[in-house]
Design a protein around this nucleic acid. Structure first.
Lengths: 142, 142
DNA sequence: ATTGGTGCAAAGGATTTGCAGTCTA
DNA sequence: TAGACTGCAAATCCTTTGCACCAAT
């Protein structure tokens, strides 16, 4: 997947060039959303993104958040993470990493253990190629 | 996770003892749902399960399907797989395996490559233990 | 009687859609 | 002006919930 070299937080001008790099025209709303996302590596739901962007004093509609996040994940700006059946999370961390999902608390955290990257890739049917590998460890304290 | 020794399809009496093994009382609806699930290893949405069970001439309500699948996945009878943002899939294959998700077609298939099992487990914070590891390879033909 | 299980319909909540208005090249 | 984009509200769709009824212990 995309392996951008990001230093959080990303400032506006960096966000703009990042979007352009992904062939996304940097409209006001998209830039504001991306700026919010790339303040730090994080996992956010659409609703949280809407809240956050709004709280920063920017006006964006719910539909645009959904449109934009759909666009961003298609283009590879963020990764969709599906763990909670309730909603989709968008991951602004571009590094290769895995997730730890605490089933007791619902908390989602990143894992970077080098060993994990040793995962072998499966043999694929002709013509198919892997574009992303999701590894989620479900953990509990019980 | 559970590593039952299953030979598909499971017949009714086997389903009943399996449920008892998981400390689930084998009501008519639960047995019918489980019988349908364990005809073969498969990934099914709640709606498909309702359809299938109904088509076999058994009467089960939608609420009961949801209740039952929630119970089954809590007890470890089936695994929840979240890949498609549309809905939850329930996996009746108890063997250790991973998934291949074709983003072009939405098709979900199993992978058994032995190598994949070499995945190292990450270091965990004190007190937490891994209860399940999900690996999904997203593939495309494009 | 009490507890567990089921079914129905209504409610809930996340996401999508239709469409009119807006911006920009 | 065309095409891309946005916003609003209504619609959709999966899943959950409230509650009455039924079954089994």
């Amino acid at each position: 997947m995309n392996t951008l070299n990001i230093t959080f937080p990303l400032e506006r001008s960096e966000v703009v060039s990042m979007l352009q790099h992904f062939k996304i025209s940097p409209t006001r709303q998209r830039v504001e959303i991306a700026e919010f996302l790339f303040q730090r590596p994080q996992h956010l739901s659409a609703e949280k993104i809407l809240d956050g962007v709004t709280r920063e004093g920017n006006r964006v509609s719910r539909a645009t958040v959904y449109n934009t996040m759909g666009l961003f994940s298609n283009k590879g700006v963020v990764r969709e993470v599906l763990i909670d059946r309730e909603r989709v999370f968008y991951d602004s961390n571009p590094e290769v990493h895995q997730h730890l999902y605490n089933i007791d608390t619902g908390e989602l955290t990143d894992v970077y253990d080098a060993e994990v990257e040793m995962v072998a890739e499966p043999e694929l049917p002709e013509g198919l190629k892997i574009i992303d590998t999701d590894i989620v460890y479900k953990v509990t304290a019980r």
